[in-house]
Amino acid sequence: MKFLLVLLVVIVAVGIWRSKRRAEAVPHSPPASALKTAQTMVACAHCGLHMPQADAVTDTSGQSFCSAEHRRLGRQDSGRS
């Protein structure tokens, strides 16, 4: 009787171990929220870096910049000409 109980515990433990390994081996698909529509890309007016429009910093004239520093430098450059 003791032997059957030990055998049952070993079988259950091996089954749990194998199911966890099988679950880890299956490649996971990206979540549905990661599969969004394409975003509009814009170029920084100062350095030309392309970035999503949502991440861009714009000035009053509507030009896009990659950072506030480049927006400031862009204003300085336009003031010189």
Rank of each mutant, 00 (worst) to 15 (best):
L7F: 14
A45Q: 03
E69P: 00
Q39H: 10
C47M: 05
A13W: 04
P30R: 09
A13E: 01
A32P: 03
L35P: 01
L73A: 12
A38V: 10
A13G: 09
S64C: 10
K2A: 09
M41A: 06
K20M: 14
D55M: 12
K36H: 08
C44P: 02
L35W: 07
E69A: 15
L7W: 07
K2S: 09
T37I: 07
T60P: 01
R80V: 03
H70D: 10
T40H: 14
Q76A: 14
T40E: 14
A45C: 03
H50S: 14
K20I: 13
P52I: 11
P52S: 13
I11D: 00
A13F: 11
P31C: 05
I11F: 13
A25Q: 11
A23C: 03
A45D: 07
A43L: 02
P52Y: 11
V14W: 03
S78Q: 14
R72W: 10
G48S: 05
D59T: 04
L49C: 03
L5R: 15
P30C: 04
V10P: 00
V12H: 02
E24G: 04
V12C: 11
V26L: 14
R80C: 01
V26C: 02
S67E: 03
P27D: 05
L5W: 09
Q76N: 05
R22M: 06
S19L: 13
L7I: 11
S19N: 12
F3V: 11
A23S: 13
G62S: 10
R71D: 04
Q76F: 07
I11K: 03
I16N: 02
L8F: 14
